[in-house]
Design a protein around this nucleic acid. Structure first.
Length: 425
RNA sequence: GGAGGGGUAGCCUAGUCCGGUUUAAGGCGGCGGUUUGCUAAACCGCUGUACUGCCCAAAGGCGGUACCGAGAGUUCAAAUCUCUCCCCCUCCGCCA
């Protein structure tokens, strides 16, 4: 969330941000609630000041065996007034918080302005799109032919939108996870963590999934826990309500987790195969950094994610998301999309975002700077490095041969017992 | 699931029985200073967070309120009394 004081002092900038994002929030109402809250607060606090002084006085009088009944009676009236004011303040604060939670982060000045994805700006293309001498098959056809996945049994076990990997398919998934974790920990200096896949409500709110997206989440009602939609949630919340030391910054974490998304309401052509599934594996990158470095750190994060794809020799493109397409909490965001020749489309496998202090304020993550006494909100960033299911689609479809076999990219072979080609079993 | 013990400002710990000289004591750590050839020690001083009023160009200063796991209640007054809930630890049971 944004700082209320910031909104008070930079109302125009916030209004522009909302406009650029094609969102509507009644800022005037917000500000009037704010001033009303402060008015009532001062009133209540003045009365409490009186009461505190009088209570001390009463204590003193009683010790001296004086009669304090008059003062007690007066304070009973004062206390009554306070009891009327306090709930009002609480109510207004709750309304204010609710409004604040629904105001998105302010986009960075470099973010393309526009209402939707049409205004996204392509900033990079990498790799040659292979010309096939045959019609490239989809990953669904390939995996069926190779016997490495079983979609019909997956839907028997659970339902549509779930995957069952089998044999070399399961092996490929495991190889990719290990390959990516090794790359990020050994080459890019991330600390590996393996967090819980279930989180509580406070964690979901800390990273911004709640209150807005509750319906997109799988929820365990009996325990008020949620299945994580991304490792961003548990990993960012590792440091919720903490004050970090300046020396330990910047902190880089990488985590493999399964991710669970209800994807409610998204039926249609993308629901077949691995492109949009309710459960998928992902290796995530999360950073906690000092404010002045966060935009540089975003560029580095993007490179770290790109490296995975380059090593796997898959053509990709990177776009800078526009103000209207960017997620709520992000101030700047890049999407990485892989070319999938069989499905004949670009598949998003990573969103790399700088959240500036937006999540940190919400999750209360600060650091203490050496020189000063003040604590400062950290900047948080994250991005996938990268999402597995769609990566598997791209590997199968890009590296397929005419006979339906799939060539394993070189860097992955050490993780697959030196296997170089997946052939039908 | 059962029994017991806990949660006090960055950390450790006292206070809770019996409400009011506690505006939460003390220690550690941290910061500043004195001493010192240097380091250490010793000694002295300072010390959290949020909201908020006034002053200020600002850094900040002077006040106020709240915070002793969370919430509610009793009272002139709650760390302390009452109720509800959460979390942690130990032991027992169950279990991959």
């Amino acid at each position: 969330m944004l700082d209320l004081k910031f909104i008070r002092e930079n109302t125009d900038a916030v209004a522009k941000s909302l406009n650029d994002r094609a969102m509507k929030v009644d800022l005037e109402k917000l500000l009037s609630l704010d001033s009303e809250r402060r008015k009532l607060l001062i009133e209540a606090e003045t009365l409490k000041h009186e009461r505190n002084k009088a209570s001390q006085e009463i204590g003193k009088m009683l010790r001296e065996k004086k009669d304090a009944n008059k003062l007690k009676a007066d304070m009973k009236v004062t206390s009554q007034k306070i009891k009327e004011l306090d709930p009002k303040v609480v109510e207004i604060s709750a309304n204010l918080d609710q409004m604040l939670l629904n105001i998105p982060n302010i986009p960075h000045s470099s973010v393309p302005i526009g209402p939707d994805q049409k205004s996204n700006k392509l900033i990079k293309k990498w790799g040659k799109i292979k010309k096939f001498s045959f019609k490239p098959r989809t990953h669904i056809e390939l995996s069926e032919f190779l016997g490495i996945m079983d979609f019909s049994r997956a839907s028997k076990i659970t339902g549509t939108g779930f995957a069952l990997y089998k044999g070399l398919g399961a092996r490929l998934e495991r190889a990719l996870i290990n390959f990516m974790l090794d790359l990020h920990t050994k080459k890019h200096n991330y600390i590996e963590v393996f967090p819980p896949f279930l989180v509580n409500r406070a964690s979901m709110t800390g990273t911004g999934q709640l209150p807005k997206l509750e319906e997109d989440m799988y929820r365990l009602k009996d325990d008020d826990l949620f299945l994580i939609p991304t490792a961003e949630v548990p990993v960012t919340n590792m440091h919720r309500d903490e004050t970090l030391d300046e020396e330990e910054m910047p902190l880089y974490y990488t985590a493999y987790t399964a991710c669970f998304r209800r994807e409610a309401g998204s039926y249609g052509k993308e629901t077949r195969g691995l492109v949009r599934v309710h459960q998928f594996d992902k290796v995530e990158l999360v950073k906690f950094v000092k404010p002045e470095t966060s935009y540089d750190e975003l560029e580095k994060l993007l490179k770290d994610a790109e490296k995975v794809i380059e090593l796997l020799e898959i053509p990709y493109r990177v776009s800078a998301l526009s103000t209207g397409d960017m997620s709520f909490a992000a101030s700047k965001c890049y999407d990485i999309e892989l070319w999938a020749p069989g499905t004949d489309t670009w598949l998003e496998v990573s969103s790399c975002s700088n959240f500036t202090d937006f999540q940190a304020r919400r999750a209360n993550i600060k650091y203490r700077s050496k020189g000063s006494k003040k604590t400062i909100f950290v900047h948080t960033l994250n991005g996938s490095g990268v999402a597995l299911a769609r990566l598997v689609v791209a590997i199968l479809e890009n590296h397929q041969e005419k006979d339906g076999s799939v060539v394993i990219p070189e860097p992955l072979r050490p993780y697959m017992d030196s296997l170089d080609v997946i052939k039908p079993s």
